[in-house]
């Protein structure tokens, strides 16, 4: 089978792999790098469970081949943790608000939400719903997810105000 060598930068770490060009980024993250936090839901670009950051933008990792990601920075849910391994404020708010049930869509939701907050520190509820509308959740009805994003935004604004 056709194989190519590729170096991927994932969560700040370079790894060189030999993989077939047709391997999707999500399969590579999960099966080659064993970063299983990123999930597969539909493999045709609808559900958003496989969302990761490519450089600073969220993308669907089922719609990109791993070879295409060389030269870019990839950040997965594992890379959202603080450097000491503790939960980020967004992850902590998701826990506090019980913004999930089965947890399967959660990593993708975190990526979509983190992207919104990076761009818009004071999002409206509509902004939040728009930002997560490409991520399907079958458990929650989205409400506690919206509340977790609102909580994080508020705390970040308060944190910034307090210096």
């Amino acid at each position: 089978m056709k194989q190519v060598e590729v170096t991927l930068n994932v969560n700040g770490k370079d790894t060189t792999l030999t993989i077939p060009p047709r391997m999707t980024l999500v399969d590579c993250l999960r099966d080659e790098l064993r970063l299983t936090g990123t999930h597969v839901g539909c493999e045709h670009g609808i559900c958003g469970a496989c969302s990761v950051f490519l450089d600073d933008e969220p993308i669907r990792s089922c719609l990109m081949f791993a070879v295409q990601a060389a030269g870019h920075r990839i950040t997965t849910v594992e890379g959202l943790l603080n450097e000491d391994g503790s939960l980020s404020d967004l992850q902590d708010s998701f826990w506090e608000c019980h913004a999930m049930q089965c947890g399967y869509c959660t990593p993708g939701m975190l990526v979509a939400s983190e992207s919104l907050l990076a761009e818009n520190p004071d999002p409206s509820e509509d902004d939040i719903r728009e930002a997560i509308s490409g991520n399907l959740c079958r458990c929650t009805g989205y409400q506690q997810i919206v509340e977790a994003v609102q909580m994080t935004a508020k705390r970040r604004r308060e944190g910034a105000a307090n210096g």
Binding site: G45, G48, S51, L54, E57, P58, I59, R60, L63, M64, A112, S115, L116, E130, A131, S133, G134
Partner: peptide, 9 residues
């Protein structure tokens, strides 16, 4: 058009 993840690509 689509959603943020698809518009980004």
């Amino acid at each position: 058009v689509g959603h943020q993840q698809t518009r980004n690509r």
